[in-house]
Design a binder for these strands. Structure first.
Lengths: 207, 207
DNA sequence: ATTATTTTAGACCAAATGTACTAAAAAATT
DNA sequence: AATTTTTTAGTACATTTGGTCTAAAATAAT
């Protein structure tokens, strides 16, 4: 039998995804799994403590996925695979992205944590771009900080594609994720060299 | 003396920007302007009615700005000016963008309205792109629906740059707006022809 | 000036929420 | 087996919120 703590986190994740973080009270979570609300409070004093734990779940799920595919992939294919697995993890915790600003506003420590994680992500993209330039898959910058702007665009897209699709899209989950992975990859396309574009098109067939 | 209705909307706009839509109750708005909460309810039965009115304010502010600059501008410069004025209006109503998903989730009629407005916006970009291609400022599509993807990227960026900057940026408002206008314009850059890029760089000096 | 309408405030209510306190039940430790 | 610790539920309370009903005040219309 699952431990109560795990049940609480599972239920919270599910309810947050369905109704949004602001509209799910501790009492709702507790009644969902059939325990008293005081018992829930015994395990997690506040909603923020639950959110902290769920954020750790996101990170470890992302890490698990990433470790699994860290093969000898080519740069562009590797980027595609990493994006795919990353987007799928995010979707399972979509409440976190949809209510990102609410969470960041009401949970200072989580906000700081999130900022740190973002720095790692940005550095990863910087390295990827540098590598693609070296391999002559991507052209050089045409002006100062052109690729820093691209990285910020990618950050905004990655943070909010789920929010946007919640408003505008109504297809199947699989299809929506696929489209947005394609769209993120597409952000690199116009910067690729002729050779880079050839490889890109080849890779994208595997989506 | 200002009418009560106007005072309510002003105060709501300000409080929403400061604390977020979910955390501002009708009572908080009423006490902010020193009227009874029943009086406020007399004017607006629900928060959604206030949001509906504020959304109309956004649209008319945007229209006013747009009419003002509708000069004989060049395509790219026109795009820059429209983006500038649009982003400034949005910032004044930033609560709307930051809590966009919360609002869309809890206000069905506003959601539908918003979807319609979006269609107009998308069509505007389609026309702009077509015009730039005709003028040989922008290259043709290299594959099916390449520019439809770009338009979606622009939509996501336009909808969420304010949310993102609320999390990551802490400079002056003017500076943040300027940076993000530049970033949006930058999304067109890699698709421009040599001549287009020349004109682009010329236009961007006027930012 | 009188009447009708609009605007305002106050008292009150029910529901939901976070929180505190107490005690019983279950599990672990000795 | 006895005792200590952990987990659970129950009760009760203060606060906030949206909402109704009533009546007074202000404004407009006649």
């Amino acid at each position: 039998m699952k431990k109560t703590k795990e049940k609480i986190l599972d239920s919270a994740q599910q309810l947050f995804n369905k109704y949004g973080v602001a509209d799910v009270s501790l009492r709702k979570i507790s009644s969902e799994i059939g325990i008293s609300h005081t018992n829930l409070i015994y395990h997690f004093k506040t909603k923020n403590e639950i959110l902290d734990q769920l954020h750790l779940r996101i990170l470890s799920a992302a890490k698990r996925e990433n470790d699994q595919l860290k093969g000898e992939e080519d740069t562009i294919l590797g980027l595609l695979r990493a994006t795919e697995s990353g987007f799928e993890v995010l979707y399972k915790f979509r409440f976190f992205m949809i209510d990102l600003n609410y969470i960041m506003r009401t949970n200072k420590s989580l906000h700081n944590f999130f900022l740190e994680v973002e720095q790692v992500r940005a550095q990863m993209y910087r390295n990827q771009i540098k590598e693609m330039i070296t391999k002559k898959l991507m052209r050089k910058e045409e002006y100062e900080s052109e690729y820093e702007k691209l990285i910020t665009q990618i950050r905004i897209f990655s943070d909010y594609w789920i929010s946007s699709s919640a408003i505008y899209c109504d297809g199947s989950i699989r299809e929506i994720i696929k489209e947005h992975v394609e769209m993120l990859m597409n952000m690199f396309y116009p910067y690729l060299t002729t050779n880079g574009k050839k490889i890109y098109k080849f890779c994208m067939k595997k989506l």
